[in-house]
Design a protein around this nucleic acid. Structure first.
Length: 432
DNA sequence: TCTGGGGTCCTAGGACCC
DNA sequence: TCTGGGGTCCTAGGACCC
């Protein structure tokens, strides 16, 4: 198949986190609602009503307190367990429209579909409307669909569908009159293009490239030289030449990061150790879920970068393991050792974290000749036992090192957390 | 007072090798 | 004063994404 014949769709849940909350709490409908990031720091999701009030993406809560009071904006902590379950169902419904290798789960609320096989047999706009209807009917989430000849075009189409209600949730650039496409592209800021961020859009504007249309008629190679091959691909994709394929099986992870800002500043080494040992176990859990081993561990600590009066302290330390592992006891012990090396007295710490890298599949790892396999076996048995206890009695019943101590000053703020309606003891109560 | 977290990819530059 | 060229590997930093 020639690349010209490719067709992609991007389906994206509108205001995802707010929409998830509204499914279980209809009193939020038609009201301005925002959902906050971890630690109740920034607004990471806004309902349309909140956007209309001028609340920007990722703005810190303290900067909009006045607006919040004035307009009775409803403020919620983020409830990732809930959103993850809704996301799983959203993706599952979309999987009924294509075959397995034609679907790519791109993010928690976005999904690419390769529809290249379908134009002959389906009216794609109609097919997309069926997707929207089924998703809304089955799980109550509103979404938009963009269709284009490349992923970047599909993203653009999705953006157009979202901003223009008369499209009724579906924008199909493949079928659109090129003159109409052109005039729409002329009206959209180049910063809206997928892959063009703040820095690049500034530079593009300084070169006289202000709109999506300007970028689409640029010369890919010239921009490739001035930016990078990424920008070159973006231009080609906007011209309808697909350069980025669907990834139906997620590529295996390069690294696993677990970090958090603290609710309050920390100065004591012991408290940092408590936090870090928790994060390491979170990372190790994800490592084991992916059936990977970790060959290198990085620990970092930071003070508050926004504090203008005090110099920013940002230090990390890494260690390459002689033998890759997925053992939480070992990883906690090592990371505490690394923390000892980078800890400095008198700093007000705001954040710490761990990065597991040098990852490789556990199934294909070859141990060297001198490895005592009985030790590996013991480690596996221990981790299995640990996980079995957690599964049966809850995540916080057993752990490695000093963690899960309630009431710590550094623990995350989540004051306005909704329930996880998918758990037995938090189900929605209709009537009592 | 209060500013998220988890990722990927690309590039430039240094170290090192022959 | 003259002072290779080409290759690889690693790392840090920057840009982007949601």
């Amino acid at each position: 198949m020639k690349h010209e014949d490719k067709v992609f769709a991007l389906i994206d849940v509108n205001n995802c986190y707010v929409s998830c909350e509204r499914v279980f709490n209809p009193s939020l409908n038609r009201k301005p609602v925002i959902v906050l990031s971890n630690n109740d720091g920034c607004a990471v999701a806004r309902s349309q009503e909140a956007k209309d009030l001028g609340i920007k993406m990722a703005v810190p809560l303290f900067q909009i307190q006045e607006l919040v009071h004035k307009h009775n904006i409803i403020v919620l902590s983020s409830n990732y367990a809930l959103y993850a379950e809704m996301s799983r169902r959203f993706m599952q419904i979309l999987s009924t429209f294509v075959s397995e290798h034609e679907q790519e789960v791109y993010s928690i609320d976005e999904c690419f579909l390769d529809l290249s096989r379908y134009p002959q047999n389906y009216d794609l706009s109609n097919y997309a409307q069926q997707m929207r209807k089924r998703i809304f009917k089955w799980i109550g989430l509103p979404c938009c669909v963009g269709i284009g000849r490349s992923k970047t075009e599909a993203k653009m189409a999705n953006h157009i569908a979202k901003k223009n209600p008369h499209f009724n949730g579906v924008c199909n650039l493949v079928e659109m009159d090129p003159l109409v496409t052109e005039s729409i592209f002329q009206s959209i800021d180049v910063a809206e293009v997928w892959g063009v961020g703040r820095k690049h859009s500034k530079k593009l504007q300084s070169m006289g490239i202000n709109t999506v249309f300007d970028l689409a008629i640029s010369q890919p190679q010239v921009l490739g030289k001035q930016f990078s091959v990424v920008m070159q691909r973006t231009v080609l994709e906007l011209q309808g030449i697909s350069c980025i394929e669907i990834e139906h099986t997620p590529p295996s992870k390069q690294q696993i990061v677990a970090s958090r800002s603290f609710g309050q500043r920390i100065t004591e080494l012991n408290e940092l150790k408590e936090a870090l040992s928790m994060y390491v176990q979170d990372a190790t859990q994800r490592l084991r879920d992916e059936k990977l081993l970790c060959g290198c561990i990085v620990v970092f600590v930071q003070s508050n970068p926004f504090d203008a009066n005090i110099p920013f302290y940002n230090k990390s330390c890494s260690y390459a393991l002689p033998q890759p592992t997925d053992n939480a006891v070992e990883l906690v012990k090592l990371s505490i050792g690394l923390l000892d090396q980078i800890f400095k007295e008198g700093i007000q710490y705001k954040k710490c974290g761990v990065i597991l890298t040098g990852l490789e599949p556990k199934s294909t790892h070859t141990y060297d000749l001198l490895t005592d396999m009985s030790i590996i076996k013991e480690s596996d048995d221990l981790m299995d036992a640990l996980e079995a206890v957690q599964q049966k009695f809850g995540k916080k019943k057993i752990a490695v090192g000093p963690c899960f101590i309630p009431g710590r000053s550094w623990s995350m703020c989540r004051d306005k957390l909704s329930k996880n309606y998918f758990k037995w003891d938090e189900l929605l109560v209709i009537m009592k």
